[in-house]
Amino acid sequence: MAISRKLLNEGEEVLASMRQHPKALFPAIFALVVLLAVGVAVQTLIDQHVVTLVVWALVAVGVLWWVARPVLLWAVAVHAITDRRIITRWGVLTRRGHDIPLKRVSDISIEINLIDRPFGCGTLIITDASTDGTVYLHDIPHVERIKLLIHNIVHELPDAHPRTEGV
């Protein structure tokens, strides 16, 4: 689950490393239950061998697309907060990522809906000063603690533009 050391600069320290809360896999689990129910229902209700084989083949394709793919994508996605930036990496064949230098963070907010509350997760919304605008990190475990961590780090950073008195 930890971020790769090769993504870090010299002297950079990882303060938190996480992936999405397993709650993000609930749609995949629901799809698995529905697909298996369809396969079993067809096998028990229809007494034709060819139809049963075709349905199970379609169930297998559905399991690969709606279950295995989301689980794999969940397993390879990682978010990390270092003392210098927020790092996000995801993707299987094509790795994608987003780095936000903490000096550019202009706003940090969270969104915890009714479903997120029992699981202790939520969406972390980070607005930076660049043209990219806003980054949404969904289903982050302990999102309030992570928001506080980022806020404290940003607050402790030296100002990028020192103020001059009397100007």
Rank of each mutant, 00 (worst) to 15 (best):
V14T: 09
L15V: 11
A16N: 06
A16F: 12
M18F: 15
R19G: 05
R19T: 01
Q20G: 14
H21V: 00
H21L: 01
K23S: 01
F26D: 00
F26S: 03
P27E: 03
A28C: 04
A28E: 03
A31I: 01
L32Q: 02
L32S: 11
L32A: 10
L36D: 11
L36T: 11
G39V: 10
A41G: 14
V42S: 13
Q43A: 09
T44Y: 08
L45T: 02
L45W: 04
I46C: 13
D47H: 12
Q48E: 02
H49Q: 14
V50K: 01
T52S: 06
L53C: 03
L53W: 08
V54R: 00
V55T: 13
A57S: 14
L58D: 07
L58A: 11
V59S: 08
V61M: 09
V61Q: 04
V61W: 09
G62Y: 01
V63H: 07
V63W: 09
V63N: 03
A68P: 05
P70S: 12
V71E: 06
L72Q: 04
V76S: 07
H79T: 14
H79R: 10
A80D: 07
I86S: 00
I87Q: 06
T88Y: 04
T88L: 01
T88K: 05
W90F: 08
G91D: 15
G91L: 15
V92M: 01
T94S: 13
G97L: 10
H98A: 15
H98S: 15
P101I: 05
L102S: 10
K103C: 15
R104V: 07
S106E: 15
D107T: 15
I108W: 14
I110N: 14
N113T: 06
L114V: 11
L114F: 13
L114T: 11
R117L: 09
L124R: 07
L124D: 10
T127M: 12
D128K: 04
D128L: 02
A129R: 03
G133C: 03
G133I: 04
G133R: 04
G133M: 04
G133Q: 06
T134C: 01
T134Y: 02
V135H: 11
V135F: 10
L137D: 14
L137R: 10
H138P: 06
H138I: 12
D139L: 10
D139G: 10
I140P: 11
P141R: 04
P141S: 02
P141L: 08
H142G: 07
R145C: 00
L148T: 13
L149G: 00
L149C: 00
I150S: 06
H151P: 00
H151C: 00
N152W: 03
V154Y: 12
